Amino acid sequence: MTEREIKELHEDEIDLYELLLVLKKRLKLIIAVFVFGVVAAAVLSFLMPNIYQARTTMLVDSSLTQALLNNLQQYQFKGENKFSFIIPLQERDNQQVNNMALAILNGLEFKKKVLNRIKAIYGNTEEILNLERSLGNKKSLFESKVDRETQAIVVLSEHKDKKLAEDILKAALEEFEKELDKVSQNYQKMFGQGYEKSDKNSIFILNVVEQPTSLEKPVKPKRKLIIAVSGVTFLILGVFSAFVIEWWSRVKSTQ
């Protein structure tokens, strides 16, 4: 090993030792920044309102049969007027039916109808007005999704008021059942059959697997996670601040 390599090796060792000295010298600053960040995060997280989640689970079945499809094909080829539309078949997976259900649930007009039901119960309170202002957001009022394992439709509503979250889902279920009846009527007209409001003649049938229920504990804010992330962030910030202050003090001393 040459003399130059030995010198560079010693310089590296001295730099590492100096870093440890800087951390020791500025230890109080690092601890102060860390404690400040943790305390601030804890205070802010406990000032945040608790958000409760209500959920309901449902299945939408299609009673379209091969006989009805044959009638439709015969009806299509009679006369000059022809039409086409997507038919969700029982032989296939339930994806098309679920897509239709999600399209209804996520529609703006549908959410307006649900909100009008909630208004009739709660009136024009500040909370209801806030919901009305955020109606254009995707997750406003409630959020709908399909469970990949069960293929059931899960509807979630998050709100500060646990009862309000449940009432929103109850109103959504009632309106959704009406919308399914309307869609069934349209399909019945396509098939050229008379429509009677009964479960037997309804093409799309709503099965509520889980009635609207809410969790006892709030789902937001996740205070422990907020405090933990803030602690790590402010610890890194404290170490960075220690090196910056040490560098600046050396620059001033050199000048």
Rank of each mutant, 00 (worst) to 15 (best):
F83K: 05
V39K: 04
L102D: 03
A40W: 03
Q73T: 05
D61Y: 09
S62M: 07
N94W: 02
N50T: 07
S62F: 07
Q96K: 15
V39I: 15
N94K: 14
G79W: 03
N106E: 11
S62L: 06
V39Y: 02
R55I: 12
D61Q: 10
G79T: 01
T56W: 09
A41N: 05
A103D: 14
K82Y: 09
G79S: 05
G79R: 03
A41V: 03
D61L: 07
L108G: 04
L59M: 13
S84M: 09
T56N: 08
I51D: 10
I51L: 10
F85K: 10
E109Q: 08
A54H: 14
R55E: 15
F83L: 13
V43Q: 01
K78P: 04
S62Q: 03
S63I: 03
F46K: 04
L105K: 00
L102I: 06
R55N: 15
F46Q: 06
S63Q: 13
K112F: 06
R55K: 15
T65Y: 01
E91V: 13
I87N: 00
V60I: 05
N71L: 10
I87D: 01
K82A: 11
Q76F: 00
N81K: 15
L89D: 05
N71G: 09
N98M: 06
V39D: 05
V43F: 09
T56S: 14
A42W: 09
N81V: 15
L47I: 05
N99K: 12
P88F: 02
R92G: 08
D61N: 15
Y52R: 15
K111M: 03
R92D: 11
N98D: 06
K78R: 11
V60R: 02
Q90S: 12
E109C: 00
A41W: 03
